[in-house]
């Protein structure tokens, strides 16, 4: 493997109360690659994704066992969660721009970190929007509400907002499931270009999407990782019968 390992999980178990949602996950996620998680609903792929920047903290009665090593440190141990979340950004299933101007949406993260310099903020906003391929569409209406954008634009704004924090990893939880095919295509193109700069981990329900954009794919079933391999291998010659069944559409 050429790339450096970014995330390394060891025997990760996760419980919602009595229900075990993740069963002994061992996975190495590499830098500057797109890793896709596929699997039927309720298989634990989103839960696993949310473990990576500790968004599961928000949910009561979640119990996590095992290790998630990020740059040599266990993120469930004694680390600064705020710092972790600035380094591991997240884009959600439904676009969730804040009810403020486009500019303020992008500048929100840096401002929360204490950046006040207007000129620097301006640069960050412009760069982030350019990288998210949204600058040309919104440059004349930066002070208008972000809620006035279309769904696809809103999602790219959310990606830009995440990029503004200059993270190392971007987690995407079904980022295109609420979008039409054209908007989806734009986001997929965007992911390809962002891959050079960031490590991208994406949860998707669309196997075609996983096939198109990812370098590696993990297949989840009932809280377990059934198979994790190079994407072409998973889609053409899977090792496990269950993976093949899922990919060929026999269940799920």
């Amino acid at each position: 493997m050429d790339n450096k390992v970014k995330f390394n999980t060891k025997n990760l178990d996760l419980f919602y109360g009595d229900f075990q949602a993740l069963k002994s996950i061992n996975m190495e996620i590499c830098e500057n690659e797109v890793t896709a998680f596929i699997g039927p609903s309720g298989c634990g792929k989103s839960t696993f994704l949310r473990c990576l920047n500790r968004m599961n903290d928000l949910i009561d009665c979640v119990d996590i066992k095992g290790e998630i090593i990020f740059d040599g440190k266990d993120i469930n141990g004694d680390i600064d969660v705020i710092n972790l979340r600035t380094r591991v950004g997240m884009v959600f299933q439904k676009p969730n721009p804040f009810p403020m101007s486009i500019y303020d949406n992008i500048a929100y993260g840096p401002k929360c970190q204490g950046l006040k310099d207007k000129a620097k903020l301006d640069t960050i906003v412009k760069d982030s929007l350019e990288r998210a391929a949204l600058w040309d569409e919104v440059k004349d209406r930066l002070n208008k509400s972000a809620l006035g954008l279309s769904g696809g634009q809103q999602q790219r704004l959310c990606i830009a907002r995440t990029i503004a924090m200059n993270p190392e990893v971007i987690l995407m939880d079904e980022p295109t499931s609420a979008l039409d095919p054209i908007a989806t295509l734009k986001i997929e193109d965007l992911m390809q270009s962002l891959k050079k700069l960031y490590t991208i981990i994406i949860v998707t329900h669309s196997m075609q999407q996983a096939g198109r954009i990812s370098d590696k794919t993990a297949f989840f079933l009932m809280g377990e990782v059934i198979e994790f391999n190079e994407t072409p291998k998973i889609f053409t010659n899977p090792d496990d019968k269950r993976t093949e069944d899922y990919i060929t559409g026999r269940f799920g």
Binding site: R85, G89, M90, F92, F98, G109, C112, M165
Partner: peptide, 17 residues
């Protein structure tokens, strides 16, 4: 909406912010 809270926290904002 809970999505606003998640979005904000995911950007590294503190709870107070």
């Amino acid at each position: 909406p809970i999505a606003f809270r998640e979005g904000s926290l995911a950007l590294g904002a503190t709870k107070l912010q």
